[in-house]
Amino acid sequence: MRIDELLKGAYERLSSISETAQLDAQLLLAHVLAVSTSYFYTWPEKDVSVADIDRFDSLLARRELGEPVAYLLRQQSFWSLDLEVAPCTLIPRADTERLVEVALSVLDTNKANRILDLGTGTGAIALSLASEQPKSTIIGVDLVAEAVTLAKRNAVRNQLSNATFLQSSWFGALEGESFDLIVSNPPYIDPDDEHLSQGDVQFEPKSALVAGNHGMADIEHIIQVAPRFMKQGAYLMFEHGYDQSIAVRKCFVEAGFIAVESFQDLGGNDRVTIGRLK
């Protein structure tokens, strides 16, 4: 079967379950054939082998069940990085790049900063900061051992040696450490949120998504404990849900933080909130 014929059938199969059916199909076929998607516009008439058609069909069947393309490809772009992804942790999303941008805006680029990423997952935030702050030291921690191993592989994959990763329940393995900046994209979804059964998130680990107290429990815990691990004048910042900024700012203020402020994502929703230790 020709490439253009194969893709046409794939678009039709995926159109009912994906708003990006054409892109999904192209990415999956490009993965199978080990080519870039531009190849399809140059050589649409090329025949695809039976073996490759079978592999493509298998991936399409999994996508039809809703499995995220990033998990099917086992990779995702984030910031300037190419990251390996796996079902043990969240897929890095474009909205989280806003957290990286805000972090870079408050850091003193003339010093070697010490930065902590809580709940690092793939290492996306930690490694993005490591790539932009080569003089700084970044530590990423995660409760899930498989995620820590994955983040370490991503550091090697992107040739970044100034980021290290540890298994830790939040600050549990960090006694005696202090940081200029602490960043986190913690679980912040209410356990009863209907979106947990929709789209990509239904395939992602609930432990990385869901928190008690209407999604605020982990954020509240981190704000209470973080000052013990922060240098004077250090910043703490979170990614959070689009409707949580008021609650997060209230927690910061009640804990004695100053310069509390929220920042919007590309969709115009409050997505990142920061506070500074007095």
Score class of each variant (00 low, 15 high):
101 E>C: 06
50 V>H: 12
124 A>E: 05
185 N>R: 07
161 S>G: 11
112 A>K: 12
103 A>S: 15
175 E>P: 01
277 L>N: 10
160 L>A: 08
231 K>L: 14
160 L>N: 05
245 S>T: 11
40 F>H: 03
91 I>R: 04
96 T>R: 10
102 V>S: 04
66 G>S: 04
154 N>H: 07
49 S>L: 04
181 L>M: 10
174 L>D: 06
55 R>L: 10
22 Q>E: 14
223 I>F: 05
89 T>F: 00
14 L>S: 11
23 L>M: 06
153 R>S: 14
247 A>Q: 14
276 R>D: 02
154 N>G: 08
207 S>W: 00
64 E>Q: 14
219 I>T: 06
255 A>N: 13
132 E>W: 02
249 R>Y: 00
1 M>R: 08
63 R>E: 08
25 A>W: 01
43 W>V: 09
97 E>C: 02
166 L>C: 08
46 K>Y: 00
19 E>H: 10
198 Q>S: 12
91 I>C: 03
2 R>D: 12
103 A>Y: 06
72 L>Y: 09
211 A>R: 12
172 G>S: 14
148 V>K: 11
207 S>M: 11
152 K>N: 04
131 S>M: 13
220 E>H: 10
251 C>R: 15
77 S>L: 01
30 A>V: 02
85 V>L: 07
90 L>D: 04
235 Y>Q: 10
202 Q>F: 03
195 H>M: 13
13 R>M: 05
135 K>D: 14
211 A>G: 10
6 L>R: 08
78 F>I: 11
150 L>C: 06
171 F>Q: 06
147 A>H: 05
40 F>L: 04
114 R>C: 09
197 S>L: 09
114 R>G: 07
49 S>D: 05
184 S>E: 03
19 E>I: 02
57 D>I: 01
232 Q>G: 08
118 L>W: 01
196 L>K: 01
78 F>V: 11
62 R>I: 00
179 F>A: 10
242 Y>N: 05
10 A>M: 02
137 T>S: 15
99 L>G: 03
122 T>A: 08
251 C>I: 04
115 I>E: 07
143 L>C: 03
60 L>P: 03
115 I>R: 05
133 Q>R: 15
130 A>T: 08
174 L>I: 09
48 V>Q: 05
240 H>G: 12
49 S>K: 06
192 D>V: 02
15 S>A: 15
104 L>D: 07
213 N>L: 13
86 A>H: 15
268 G>E: 05
